[in-house]
């Protein structure tokens, strides 16, 4: 068991799994956020369909539509660059854990609705407001699961390789130590 752990640690220490996870989750979220930002009104309409936030007063719904795409984009950029990567991964993971079940619930309601005429649950196709237009629920769930795994990996990895944040910290530390050396 210990051997296996050390193997996982060794692989993690290379920084490659973290880099791949960061690029995968970051690029997909950047794409989704970009699409939402292209048409914020459409995102507002789709958000309303979930009845997540109280509609009275309207500020809850409108603020969600204004902030969520930017939060996604910032987290995506943070992940790709490796600045605040853990916080970004945790934020995106929290969002996925919140929204993925809601998607399934909405798809289930559509499946149960005779007017929808969906033969199987996987045949349910709808605009989930995710930024990709109409999607099949099973494909979307698979995508969400992969994103959750990627975000979890980025959150739990101990590696700091290929991260801009770690590089900045190291350069700052070097600068401080050289200044201290000069003072001495």
């Amino acid at each position: 068991m210990e051997k296996r752990l050390s193997l996982i640690r060794r692989i993690d220490n290379t920084g490659v799994p973290l880099l791949l996870a960061r690029l995968f989750v970051g690029s997909i979220f950047a794409w989704l956020a970009y699409n939402k930002l292209l048409d914020p009104i459409e995102f507002l309409k789709q958000t309303r369909e979930y009845h997540l936030v109280p509609e009275d007063p309207p500020i809850f719904l409108t603020l969600t539509a204004v902030v969520v795409p930017w939060l996604e984009l910032l987290c995506a950029a943070a992940l790709i660059l490796g600045v605040y990567a853990r916080g970004a991964a945790a934020t995106l993971l929290a969002m996925l854990l919140f929204f993925a079940p809601l998607l399934l619930i909405r798809a289930w309601h559509l499946y149960q609705d005779p007017a929808g005429g969906f033969a199987t649950f996987c045949a349910v196709e709808f605009d989930c407001g995710c930024g990709t237009g109409e999607v099949f629920i099973c494909a979307k769930t698979l995508e969400n699961t992969a994103l959750m795994v990627g975000a979890l990996l980025a959150l739990l990895s101990r590696s700091k390789r290929f991260c801009l944040g770690a590089l900045i910290t190291r350069l700052r530390a070097e600068k401080t130590s050289s200044a201290a050396f000069e003072r001495a």
């Binding site: 902030v67 930017w70 939060l71 916080g87």
Partner: peptide
């Protein structure tokens, strides 16, 4: 540290979102 990063990102998202809007 992770929680503080999350808070910073959320505040930043709020500020950028409202400004751009």
């Amino acid at each position: 540290s992770t929680i503080s990063q999350m808070i910073i990102l959320c505040v930043l998202g709020l500020v950028v979102g409202l400004s751009v809007n």
